[in-house]
Structure formats: structure tokens, C-alpha cells
């Protein structure tokens, strides 16, 4: 029989309400509170332990709480980790999220929680764990636990392709193809959708356009003539020996290259390693992607304060969003240390 562990807060453990919210993490062998119901519903595993932690404690000592719980779990064998249900309780929801994230990272097991749609934990963690669509109050406990158990049972049975809609968990931002049971050819779906759209009736698009996640516009540069400006590119401009071994497609690596004392990028010293386009032009004159020559001129003329001594490179083609984000975050750390004021990014 496979084994499961459940995380709950002090309230559902029966320790107490708000006054006991500083309750420090504790792992108890056996079933406490909602663990009884979970153990009953779960077919493919038994719940062996219950983790209990006060919402305030984890809220104000998150790292410490997570650390202690992970340490406590080290000696315990388990195949899946549950947390909640957290209903609409915000602190409880994010506690479930943080602990599931850490458990998944450390032990590599699937994690399942349950929250109400308005619980802020949903937005924070839906991409990282299975969060069953739960009720808003504890009266829905039994129903919510049933959903968690169903998802858990399927994961334990080795099914990882669970459809969000069918299993009633929040979409994790993972889109794959599938064959509906009543297969209807695309041509019929398209014409039916068009007829509805023409008639002003409701229809359901099969590709909901994600709300573009805009970032706040950064404050503008006040005085360009005093600003230190860095250049970045996704066109793969590197020294000819490609010292960082940046891949020519689906890149996971980036590099920074010192241009101190250069008034332009010399062909034969720098080149592009990008596989997505004809490299002839950029190899012959790398400034068409990294315009060091004109930036130096603007620096001399005093239009800008300074061209920062390193430029940053990677390759954009086929690179996943997750990798691009990680690389950018790493570059940002470096630029902050270098006290860069503003950035020009050339994308191919």
C-alpha cells in the first residue's frame, strides 16, 4: 500500500483558533482531523502522518516553518502529499501552497490541495500543484476531500494527464492535445462557432487568449547624459569561440562579454551562433545586432553617460519561456550589481 501525508492548520487539528495560530510545526503519526476523511476516501494509499502548523507561525516564519517540516518528513516514507482543504482562508491557502512547493521540490512527489476560487493561494500556486476547486466554507469539507482523494488516486495510479475540467482542479497553465469522446471534426466545430458568433449567441473558444500579463512600466530615465546603459540581445552575438557554449537553439545558457576599449564589434572577433536565421550579415558586421559602434559615438558626444562595459547575449529561437525568464532573472542580478540605469534589448 502506498503512503500519503496530509498538512493541516492548527484549527482543523483541533489545537485551537486564532489564539493558537502561532502553533509551531509538528508531525503526528496517524490521522488528525480531516486526515480521517481523506484516509477513508483515498483508495490507492493510506494516510500515515498528519503535519500540523499554525497559520500565523508559517505566515511570519515561512522559511523556518518549511525547513522544520521538511526535516521532520525526512524519515517518513510517502508517495504523495496533501494539504488542506483550505476553503477561502487566505493564510491557510498560501501555507498549503508553500509547503506543497517545498515538498515537491525536495521529495519529488505530487502534491494536491483544495481551495476556493477566491483564495489568493489559487493564483499563487495553481501552476505548481493540483488545487481542487473547493468550497468557500468548512461545511464543504467532505466534498472537497473527495475531490482531493480522486485526484490523488489517479496520480498514484500513474495517470499524469488529468484534464483540469474533468477532474475539477484549477488549470495549471499546461495545455496539451486530446481527443474528446464525441469527436467532432474541426470543420464542423468552426462552422458551428461561426454561426453562433454571427447570431450573437454564446460560444466557447478552444484557445482562450491569456490576459497579457503586462508588467508595470518602469520609471523613465531622467537624464540620459548621466545614465549607464547596457545592451542585451537574443541574436546570439558571442566571441567567435563561444566561450559560454550558448546553444544555437533552445538555449539554456547566456553570456556577458567585455567590450572595454572597443569602438565597434569586429567581424572575426564576434559572430552569431543563432540557428534561426541566415548568419551571413551579422557575421560580416556584428554591429547590425549589437550596435556597439553607434553607442560609442553617443557616449563620446555625451548623449549617454556611459555604455556599460559588458553586453549580454543569448539565443531566442525555441527557448522556452521558463528558461528565458530564468536567464533574464540571472542577468538582472548582475545588472543590479553593476549599477546599470537602463537597458536596450535587440531581439531577432
Amino acid at each position: 500500500m502506498k503512503k500519503a501525508v496530509l498538512y493541516i492548520n492548527q484549527f482543523f487539528a483541533g489545537v485551537g483558533g486564532e489564539t493558537e495560530a502561532d502553533f509551531e510545526p509538528e508531525i503526528r503519526e496517524g490521522l488528525v482531523g480531516p486526515a480521517l476523511e481523506l484516509d477513508k476516501q483515498l483508495q490507492n494509499a493510506e494516510v500515515t502522518h498528519t503535519v500540523i502548523c499554525g497559520d500565523n507561525f508559517i505566515g511570519s516564519n515561512q522559511e523556518e516553518a518549511v525547513k522544520r517540516i521538511l526535516e521532520g518528513l525526512e524519515g517518513i516514507e510517502f508517495d504523495i502529499f496533501f494539504a488542506g482543504p483550505a476553503f477561502q482562508a487566505g493564510r491557510y491557502g498560501s501555507a498549503c501552497g508553500f509547503i506543497c512547493r517545498a515538498v515537491r521540490e525536495k521529495f519529488g512527489v505530487e502534491t494536491v490541495s483544495s481551495m476556493h476560487v477566491e483564495n489568493p493561494g489559487v493564483l499563487m500556486f495553481k501552476k505548481e500543484l493540483y488545487i481542487a476547486e473547493g468550497g468557500h466554507i468548512a461545511a464543504k469539507m467532505r466534498k472537497d476531500i473527495k475531490k482531493m482523494a480522486n485526484i490523488g488516486d489517479k496520480l498514484l495510479a500513474g495517470e499524469t494527464m488529468l484534464r483540469a475540467e474533468a477532474e475539477e482542479f484549477f488549470p495549471r497553465g499546461i495545455r496539451h492535445q486530446f481527443w474528446p469522446e464525441e469527436a467532432k471534426p474541426a470543420a464542423i466545430r468552426a462552422v458551428e462557432m461561426l454561426k453562433k458568433k454571427l447570431a450573437g449567441e454564446e460560444y466557447q473558444t478552444e484557445l482562450p487568449i491569456p490576459k497579457s500579463d503586462r508588467v508595470e512600466i518602469a520609471k523613465p530615465v531622467v537624464d540620459l547624459s548621466k545614465a549607464r546603459i547596457a545592451l542585451m540581445n537574443t541574436g546570439g552575438i558571442v566571441p567567435v569561440d563561444n566561450p559560454d557554449k550558448i546553444q544555437s537553439a533552445s538555449a539554456t545558457r547566456w553570456g556577458k562579454y567585455d567590450i572595454s576599449g572597443m569602438d565597434h564589434l569586429e567581424s572575426g572577433v564576434f559572430k552569431t551562433i543563432h540557428a534561426g536565421f541566415d548568419p551571413a550579415a551579422a557575421d560580416a558586421d556584428p554591429n547590425v545586432i549589437m550596435p556597439i559602434d553607434v553607442m560609442r559615438a553617443f557616449e563620446k558626444e555625451g548623449k549617454i553617460g556611459e555604455l556599460y562595459k559588458d553586453f549580454y547575449s543569448t539565443v531566442g529561437t525555441g527557448t522556452t519561456e521558463a528558461e528565458a525568464r530564468r536567464m533574464a532573472q540571472e542577468i538582472v542580478v548582475h545588472m543590479k550589481e553593476a549599477q546599470v540605469d537602463a537597458v536596450l534589448m535587440v531581439s531577432t
Partner: peptide, 30 residues
């Protein structure tokens, strides 16, 4: 990438050919 740079507070401009792609990824200054 440009979005992460801006998120960190750096004023940033993206120079690129496929404007619709830059628009979709949420670049602010193009």
C-alpha cells in the same frame, strides 16, 4: 526576457522586427 528586466525596475526598450510578437509578450517600449 524584456519583461523580467522591466519587472526588476530597469527602464528598457526592445528593438525587434516582429512587433506583434513583442506586443504579445508584453514589452512596453518597442
Amino acid at each position: 526576457m524584456v519583461k523580467e528586466v522591466e519587472k526588476a525596475g530597469f527602464p528598457v526598450v526592445i528593438l525587434c522586427n516582429l512587433i506583434p510578437v513583442a506586443r504579445s509578450v508584453g514589452a512596453n517600449k518597442i
